[in-house]
């Protein structure tokens, strides 16, 4: 697998203003349109991505613009969507499949694990799998079962896959464009609860030094590092403002890449703050927070002031409806996590 930590690539500035205010939906739609325009081998496929434009409007207008050969609807069969993507990749295409909701990825696990992740290895590099698998992910939209799962640790555990999750429209736009030009399969986990929030997208960010690889310090702080990704980054930024009222200076590290994890960026932040709280929506046990805690412990054991805290979902199936607010780490639970690392004393 090629390394994701690499120098920014200079790109030509696009038409129009360099900075636009877009929702994450619009930013992703823009990124897909540009990928399709720039790479004639890129194709978009999935349930309702064509005529309907996707249930979240991410592929809105793409079929009308690029035609039914390049943006097409599939049967309701995720194993088929991924199986077709494997075949397309073998034939030299860059498929960008969408699994409509996280919970629908399970029927395609065989294709994802045994084909997408392994074909390059199995063929000694002769059959790379440049597949960008878009998965609207995580909870927060009051959807029924199967529509609010957090599968990052499943995907991250599969050799051969890379996993990334954007936290805002600017990250979404650039990370999707980056992922869709990689030679390796990337699982692109879109935080669906953040689809509608608008933010500034620096369309010329490449020229301004946007780094697509590694983690990103979303807010600098001195006392404790909150490690998060996807929708939890925005929540941790809220928490950091509240903690500031109490005199606690919180650093928020947007991990972005969940495989490979930017261990150096993680260590650099925690070496400074000496305390870490990792926040994720997925269940606690064997969640990615455990991996983060291990990496921090390996690299910062001597300077850590407290064991790494995990503030996560619970070890239960994702609940629908109002119970969502109890399941997803809320502001108070994250504040409690910070309090625990602050008051911890050795001995």
């Amino acid at each position: 697998m090629s390394e994701t930590l690499e120098a920014p690539v200079m790109q030509e500035a696009g038409e129009g203003p360099a900075v636009e205010t877009l929702s994450m939906q619009q930013a992703l739609n823009r990124a897909l349109a540009e990928v399709l325009a720039e790479n004639p081998r890129a194709v978009v496929l999935g349930e309702d991505v064509g005529r309907l434009g996707g249930v979240f409007r991410i592929t809105d207008g793409l079929q009308a613009r690029f035609g039914e050969q390049r943006v097409f609807d599939t049967p309701l069969a995720e194993s088929g969507i991924l199986g077709m993507s494997v075949g397309l990749a073998m034939a030299g295409y860059h498929p960008i499949p969408e699994v409509q909701f996280d919970g629908f990825a399970y029927p395609a696990i065989n294709q994802i694990v045994c084909q997408v992740g392994r074909m390059n290895y199995r063929s000694r590099g002769t059959l790379p799998m440049p597949i960008t698998l878009r998965v609207p992910s995580f909870g927060g939209i009051r959807a029924p079962e199967h529509h609010g799962e957090s599968l990052e640790s499943l995907f991250a555990h599969v050799p051969g896959l890379k996993v990334v999750s954007p936290s805002d429209p600017n990250q979404a736009y650039h990370l999707l464009k980056h992922a869709a030009t990689r030679p390796d399969p990337v699982v692109f986990m879109e935080p669906k609860s953040r689809y509608w929030q608008k933010g500034e997208v620096d369309l010329d960010a490449a020229a301004h030094g946007f780094r697509p690889g590694g983690s990103r310090v979303a807010r600098e702080g001195r006392h404790v590092t909150l490690v998060a990704w996807g929708a939890m980054v925005a929540r941790c930024l809220q928490v950091s403002e509240l903690a500031a009222e109490d005199g606690i200076d919180v650093e928020v590290l947007d991990l972005r890449w969940l495989k490979p994890i930017d261990a150096e960026g993680l260590a650099a932040s925690v070496a400074k703050t000496r305390r870490a709280v990792v926040v994720h929506e997925a269940p606690l046990t064997a969640g990615l927070g455990a991996e983060v805690a291990a990496l921090v412990t390996e690299r910062c054991f001597g300077t850590l002031r407290a064991p790494v805290e995990r503030v996560t979902g619970f070890d239960v199936p994702y609940p629908s409806g109002d119970l969502e607010d109890e399941y997803i780490p809320n502001i108070d639970r994250i504040l409690f996590g910070i309090q625990r690392v602050l008051e911890y004393r050795r001995g």
Partner: peptide
């Protein structure tokens, strides 16, 4: 354009509420 998908609802942007104070 910003209407939710066929499944689920658009989350409300609310001012953050807290009960816990750091001490």
């Amino acid at each position: 354009d910003d209407t939710a998908g066929i499944v689920g609802t658009v989350p409300k942007e609310e001012a953050p509420k807290r009960r816990v104070r750091l001490n």
